[in-house]
Design a binder for these strands. Sequence first.
DNA 1: GATATCATTTTGTCCAGGACAAGTGTTTGA
DNA 2: TCAAACACTTGTCCTGGACAAAATGATATC
Lengths: 324, 324
Amino acid sequence: MSLRSLEKAAPVSVDPLSGREAAAPGSADPVLMLSIGAVERDTGLSKDVLRMWERRYRFPLPLRDQHGERIYPPDQIAKLRAIRRLMDRGHRPGKIINLDLPALEELGRTPAHRSESAGDIDEALELIGNHHLPQLRQLFNLRLMTQGLQRFVLDTVVPLTAAVGDAWGRGEFAVFEEHLYTEQIQSVLRNAIATAQAASQAPRVLLTSFPTEQHSLGLLMVEALLVCDSATCIPLGTETPGQEIVRAAEAHRADVVALSFSAAFPERQAASGLKTLRASLPGTTAIWAGGACMRRLRKSIDGVVQVRTLDQIAGLLTDWRSAH
Amino acid sequence: MSLRSLEKAAPVSVDPLSGREAAAPGSADPVLMLSIGAVERDTGLSKDVLRMWERRYRFPLPLRDQHGERIYPPDQIAKLRAIRRLMDRGHRPGKIINLDLPALEELGRTPAHRSESAGDIDEALELIGNHHLPQLRQLFNLRLMTQGLQRFVLDTVVPLTAAVGDAWGRGEFAVFEEHLYTEQIQSVLRNAIATAQAASQAPRVLLTSFPTEQHSLGLLMVEALLVCDSATCIPLGTETPGQEIVRAAEAHRADVVALSFSAAFPERQAASGLKTLRASLPGTTAIWAGGACMRRLRKSIDGVVQVRTLDQIAGLLTDWRSAH
DNA sequence: GATATCATTTTGTCCAGGACAAGTGTTTGA
DNA sequence: TCAAACACTTGTCCTGGACAAAATGATATC
C-alpha cells in the first residue's frame, strides 16, 4: 500500500451531509479554494517551492481534498502573494514567512515611499479606481502633449505604473482595474511610437523578453524612448525563446538586443539565460538588460549592460553611436 | 544509498580529456543543451509532462549531466516544439510522438489549404519572410487607407493572420517572424482604433479572455470592428479571471461581454467557463463568444452568442441596438 | 440520423521525500 | 583589509507511484 493510499484512509474532515469540507479555521467557500497548480499560476511560486516551504517552514499548510490533494484557502493565497511581492523587492523567504499578513503589508509599505507621488499620479489613480475610461485617456493624451514623449514616459508612465502595481499589491485595485490601466497605457504608447517613428537610423535595436516574462509595458517604454532618439526598433513582443532571439538578431542585423525582466522574474534564470544568449550572439551585438529584476541583481554579467533605470537609455544610445 | 546516487555511479559518457560529454548522436554544443526547467519555459511543456513522456513513450530521451540531471539536446527540443505545435491544432501526443521531425512537419502541412490566398496576402507573407519591416508597415497602412478599417480587418487581417499561422505551423516561418507580424498588426490596429474612437454610444462592450488564453489579436480585431460602428469598448486585455470579469462588467455597466477563444483553448473548459459566467452575470448582459474554438464547438450554450466569423459582429450590433 | 450515456483509453497532474548546487552571510586566517 | 573556508539558506531536480480529467469509442435512445 502506498503512502498516498494511507493518507486517503486518514480522517479527512468532510461534512457527510453536504459532501463539503467542514469549516476549518481559515477555510472558506470551496469555490475559492485553489489546487497547487492554480496557486502556482496565481502566485508565480512553483509547485516544488510550495511543497518545499510546507516541509521546511510549515507554511503554507493547505487543507486536503477527498483525494488527499492540497487545496489552498484564500487567506493563505493572499499571504503567499504578499510574500512573493516582498521577495521581488529583495526580502528573503525564511525571514518573512512566519509573519502575519498585516506585518507583511507593513513591511511592504515602508520601503515604498509613495509620499511624494505627484498630483497627476493621484489624479490618474482616482480615475482608474472610478472606472472613468474616457477621462483617463484624455489625461494621458494631455500629459503626452504637454510633456513630450520622453518626459511622459519617464515622469508619468514609470511612476504611475509603479503606483498602480503598489496599489494592486495592497489590494486597493482589482485585477481588472490593473488590466484596464495596462491596456490604456499601451494604447497611448503604441500610438505615440507609431507617430514619432522617423526614418530608420542606427543602431538597430531588437526588443523582446525571455519565455515566461509576459510583461510588455517595459519594452514599450524602452521603444518609446528609443524612437525619441531616432533609433530603429524591431519589437518582437514578449516571450521569445533564446534560439529565436539569436535567429531574429541575425535576420534583422540587430546592433543591440534589449531584454526586459520584471520584478517577478527569477534572478537565476535571468542570469543563466543572459549568459547563454551572450555566448550565442556575435560579440559585435550589444545586449541591454533592464527591468526591476536587473535592479536587484548583484553580480554583473560579462558583455551585458544592465539598465537599472530608464534614464540611462538616452546615454547608452549616445555612447553606442560615438563608439561606432 | 539513494537511487540517484546509484545513477551517478553509472557510466556517463564524459570525455576524460575535455571533461565534456562525448558527442552522442544528436548531441551538440553544450551551451545549447537545456535543463528540464529551461525546456519547460521554452516549449510550454511542464516538467511533469516531460518526465512522463520519457517514461511512457521513450521520448524525449535527454542526456544526463555530471549530476545525473537531464540535459536536452537542440534536436529533441526542436521535435518537442513541433509536437507542441501539432497538439495546439488538435493532434494527440500518443499518435505523433514517435514520428520524426520531417514527418511531423509534413503532418502540419496537410490540413492547410493555402490554395486561394490573394495577391496582397502573398505580398505581405513575402515581406515578413524577408524581414522587410518598414515595407510591411507601409503595406498595412496603405491597405488600411484604401480599404477602410472594417474591410481591412475582414479582408486583410483575418486571412493574413490565418496564412501566417499556417505558414508557422508548416515550419515556413520562425517563431520570431510570427511574433514580429503580431506586433506590427497590433500596432496598426491599435492606432486605427484610437483614431476612429468616437463619442461613446451604446452598447458598452467589455472585451477580454479567460485565464490561459493569451491571444490578444482576435480581441483587437473585434474592437476595431466595434469602433467602426461607434460602440463603446472597454478592453481588458487577456486572461481575466471569471470573478473579475463579473466585477468589471458591473463596474463599467457593460451591456455585452465579448470573449475570445483561440483554437488551442480546450472546448470543455470554454463551455463550462461560459456557463459559469452566464450564471454569474445579470440576464440583461449579453455574452458574445468568438474565436477558432467556438467555430469547432457543436453544442450551443444557452444565453451565449457564438460568433463563428467576424462578419457577424456588425449584424449582432444592429440586432442589439434594435432590441434596446 | 442525430444525440445522449456509459465504458475505456489516453494523458496530465499530484504526491512523498531525498539529494544537492548555487547563493548568502559569517568566521577565520593571512 | 581582503579572501578563503565554512555553515546556512533556498530552489531545483530526482524517482516512481497513484489517480483525476479529458478524449474517444461504443451503445442505446429519440
